[in-house]
């Protein structure tokens, strides 16, 4: 069953317009800066908000078609929702939390509890904790219960709002792997909101990037890294991204000009990997066409390399070896020569 969403709604300062599809068995992550509309989008899918315009459909079933049209309320949608802070019912124990969905659909108490026990076992919650109140559970345990609770209601669509945000870093790695495995067993479309790119990359097959209420890019992790279409996405995936105006093989970026291998005209984005930037203490001789002088703003050592942030007319990041850092005496304030080959610059129209 396929999720088709073409939704538009205004809520406070947010003006959201997004159109996307999610196939059965596919996991899509909504990523974007704060206030971009990720959670609002999720709520509209869950039926907690009505769309102003557009249409949300699950298979043949129309869930929302705007004012005056069809609207299936959340309790009748069959949508599983996992919140970042779990929102387990404090007055019910873990098993009754999971049994809540089946009970709401008219399953007898005994049967609902039996199913809940199975689900809790499936998500790996120790049997000794089935009768525990939410307050007694760790973040990871609560996360498992929340997932079991959503799945026990046998939804047709699974929505997760930053499912790993409330889990501490030490448990995160294992839980991420676990969650991925559980998601794989769910047959319907899955949509998750992720603030953390690593979560999104690890859990999702495809990323949807929302910025200012608009879908700016959709694609696999590889597609995004290879061709980020906005500064936000570039920052997210760690590549350099410059906005400029192209005329033939030259792109004007602010006061600077870069030579590129592709001939284009108009507004363009130039992206390139930090490794493509070379640093020198003196002006290099040879082929590179793009050479300029820039001050070092910051040096951030990583395990096997260092990220060097450059200021000046072309603010960007270079990645060099630790040996280069020592050799060039790279430190904030030091002036260096930077060079990028034209063939390394990926130019795309905006």
């Amino acid at each position: 069953m396929r999720l088709g969403a073409d939704l538009a709604l205004t809520r406070g300062a947010l003006d959201l317009e997004a159109c996307f599809e999610v196939a059965a068995g596919e996991t899509v992550a909504l990523v974007g800066p704060n206030g971009a509309g990720k959670t609002t989008c999720l709520w509209a899918l869950a039926g907690l908000l009505r769309v102003d315009r557009g249409r949300i459909a699950l298979g043949e079933r129309v869930l929302d078609s705007g004012p005056g049209g069809a609207f299936v309320p959340p309790e009748a949608r069959g949508v599983g929702l996992v919140f970042q802070d779990h929102l387990l019912f404090a007055h019910l124990d873990a098993r009754d939390n999971v049994a809540y969905g089946p009970r709401s659909r008219g399953v007898a108490r005994r049967e609902a509890r039996a199913r809940a026990t199975q689900w809790l076992a499936r998500v790996g919650l120790d049997a000794s904790l089935h009768a525990a109140r939410p307050a007694q559970l760790s973040g990871g345990q609560a996360q498992r219960v929340a997932l079991a609770r959503a799945l026990a209601a046998e939804p047709a669509l699974l929505l997760l709002d930053e499912p790993l945000a409330a889990v501490d870093a030490s448990a995160r790695l294992a839980l991420r792997r676990e969650l991925r495995a559980h998601l794989a067993t769910f047959a319907g479309p899955r949509v998750l909101v992720a603030h953390d790119l690593t979560d999104a990359l690890a859990l999702a097959d495809r990323l949807l990037v929302l910025e200012g209420g608009r879908l700016v890019q959709s694609g696999t992790a590889r597609e995004l890294v290879g061709k980020p279409r906005s500064r936000y996405v570039a920052d997210l995936v760690g590549v350099n991204c410059l906005e400029g105006r192209a005329h033939d093989h030259h792109v004007q970026v602010g006061a600077a000009e870069l030579t590129v291998a592709t001939g284009l005209a108009g507004d363009v984005l130039i992206t390139f990997h930090p490794r493509a930037v070379s640093l020198y203490s003196a002006r290099p001789s040879g082929s590179p066409r793009n050479v300029w002088r820039a001050p070092v703003v910051a040096v951030e050592p990583l395990v096997d390399r260092a990220r060097v942030e450059l200021g000046g007319a072309l603010p960007l990041v270079a990645e060099v070896t630790p040996a280069s850092v020592a050799e060039l005496r790279l430190a904030p304030g030091v002036e260096v020569w930077a060079a990028v080959k034209a063939t390394e610059l990926v130019v795309s129209e905006r």
Binding site: A46, G47, L48, P73, F89, G101, S104, R105, A153
Partner: peptide, 21 residues
């Protein structure tokens, strides 16, 4: 909202979630 997404109608949400909380 969590209760509603689990299939509880408004009366049931009130009775089993809102009021106990």
């Amino acid at each position: 909202q969590a209760a509603a997404s689990l299939g509880a109608r408004p009366w049931r949400v009130l009775r089993t979630v809102t009021l106990p909380l």
